[in-house]
């Protein structure tokens, strides 16, 4: 190996190191979710999965940490399809609450915010992701009646993952599973939901008790 060749290799090594060090961390959730093992609800429900949910991307620049792009939107359709399949015996999906063919109670999930932390920031061993979901509840006339908020949290031990991308992906996945778990367990006991489901009962529709 001549001297010129060695200099070229060193240059290549340093360039790679600098480029890798400054590159952004791109996290994308492409995974399958399990269906919840709970008693199915018989009420007919319309799930509204709109573009703002499926296109949700969180971008943030962390001082001395670079740029982070966390795409959780791509996993949302699969998440809610699995959730609905486990929780409701009669459900349909729509892209917008404006769809005239919706004839049942409708629920529209929305990611209101996402925050994350890396082990470098918190000086712990964990990647962490916090998400807040808002579930907008619509009556039979597609009027917004109330909003059910669910905070979700996921973390991943840095020792189980190779790098920031893998760690944040695992933490975000854990947060998504967390929201599914809370939704499926609390759906049958939450007062807000009971009141909303009552809007579908025949007595309420007739206006008589």
């Amino acid at each position: 190996m001549n001297k010129w060749h060695r200099i070229k290799m060193l240059h290549c090594f340093l360039t790679t190191a600098v480029v890798t060090g400054c590159a952004s961390t791109q996290v994308s959730l492409e995974t399958d979710f399990p269906s919840p093992l709970v008693e199915k609800q018989s009420t007919r429900i319309a799930f509204i999965i709109n573009e703002s949910l499926t296109d949700f991307v969180h971008t943030e620049t962390v001082e001395k940490g670079g740029d982070f792009v966390i795409e959780v939107g791509s996993a949302q359709r699969g998440l809610f399809e699995r959730l609905a399949a486990g929780l409701f015996s009669n459900h349909t999906f729509f892209n917008s609450i404006g769809d005239q063919s919706i004839s049942s109670l409708a629920i529209e999930p929305e990611i209101r915010e996402l925050q994350f932390a890396t082990p470098d920031q918190t000086r712990t061993d964990y990647y962490e992701v916090w998400m807040r979901y808002d579930f907008k509840l619509y009556d039979l006339e597609r009027n917004l009646t109330s909003t059910w908020s669910i905070p979700a949290y996921g973390k991943a031990n840095k020792n189980n993952h190779t790098g920031k991308r893998d760690g944040l992906e695992a933490a975000a996945l854990s947060a998504c599973r967390d929201v599914m778990a809370v939704f499926s367990i609390r759906f049958s006991s939450e007062q807000l939901i009971s009141d909303w489901l009552n809007l579908d009962s025949p007595t309420t529709q007739d206006g008589s008790e």
Binding site: V38, Y153, A181, V182, I185
Partner: peptide, 12 residues
């Protein structure tokens, strides 16, 4: 954990 979801998640 997947087959018993959501009963063995960290929160539950």
């Amino acid at each position: 954990v997947d087959r018993t979801f959501p009963w063995f998640e960290p929160r539950t």
